[in-house]
Nucleic acid binder design. Structure first.
Lengths: 168, 168
DNA sequence: TTAAACTTTCAATATTTATTGAAATATACT
DNA sequence: AGTATATTTCAATAAATATTGAAAGTTTAA
């Protein structure tokens, strides 16, 4: 397979995967494009390569920066802004995990905690089943949360840090 | 908080969470409803409780069955079909992991393998970066795949099976 | 201070995805 | 074999989501 074709397929697949996991397809594609670019790209280059509008490119790049996956670069003597993607996949994975934990896991944990305090008749099967389900989900979610927390702190920890490097 | 209100909030939150992870909101809501129902429900009951159409209820219930999260029950002397959701959260998590692995992870692994064989000039930075990124992602994805594989086989294994019970 | 270069915003529009509902099909009982 | 009951299908429609593009805003330098 030629490089140009391979790039195209990679960008498409990354976009599809993103959309299956609730991430805007274009955002995933822009990320893919930057990931396989040795140098930082300008908004113009992103627009041209993915055939998207200026507004879309601008918003998508900002989102990627908010996700901590892309950084702005400025070059002396130039007005244009350049965008560069973090290339280390483990760092990317950690970053995504961190954001999704914050945006989604933590709010649901908070709600589950509240729902566990529901009042009702202990003899009522409706009440029993509700409470059991909520409690069980809460336990699982708390475990996931704790595990992620450990993972995210791993980099600061010499022992786990060295273990995770084996995955790279 | 009253049971009725708590149920409502749980169903809404589950739907929202689902949609953030690429799962049809209604499907997640129907799943939530069945999860907190002690008894199996009919299509009619699902339609009424969530205010959705018959067609939608039917398709969504079929999807949930295909995901292995819900089973049809039939009761002797009755024509209607009843739907019951698996209640064990660990089994649910395993089932979701299994399906997403099969539907999404495996296809992308296959593609990544192909993309790694891209032809090009070893001196070309474009080529180098592409190849490095694809190889790294492939490694991470393979590790995730192997880890999931182990997790999914755990139930068949007395030792891990008993460990996982600790999470409940 | 003016103007060119570049970035951001957001209402309008397009695209994608989900839902409806009625007709077609299937099932079981008399 | 007829009929009432239940389920499935899917074209039409609605709703949600993403994208455009042009105007407004910002920055830099002469």
């Amino acid at each position: 397979m030629e490089l140009a074709e391979a790039k195209q397929k990679f960008i498409e697949a990354w976009g599809k995967l993103g959309s299956e996991w609730g991430i805007n397809r274009t955002m995933a594609q822009v990320h893919a494009l930057l990931l396989i670019s040795p140098e930082a790209l300008t908004t113009e280059q992103v627009m041209e390569q993915l055939q998207i509008s200026r507004g879309n490119a601008n918003m998508t790049l900002r989102d990627l920066i908010n996700w901590g996956l892309v950084e702005k670069q400025h070059r002396s003597g130039e007005r244009k802004e350049y965008f560069y993607a973090e290339k280390d996949v483990w760092t990317i994975a950690r970053q995504v995990a961190k954001e999704r934990k914050r945006r989604e896991l933590e709010p649901i944990l908070k709600l589950l905690g509240q729902l566990q305090e529901v009042q009702g008749d202990e003899q009522d099967p409706e009440y029993q089943t509700f409470k059991t389900s909520v409690t069980d989900i809460n336990k699982l979610a708390s475990n996931v949360d704790k595990t992620l927390e450990t993972m995210l702190k791993a980099e600061e920890n010499w022992f786990f840090g060295s273990i995770f490097k084996l995955f790279k």
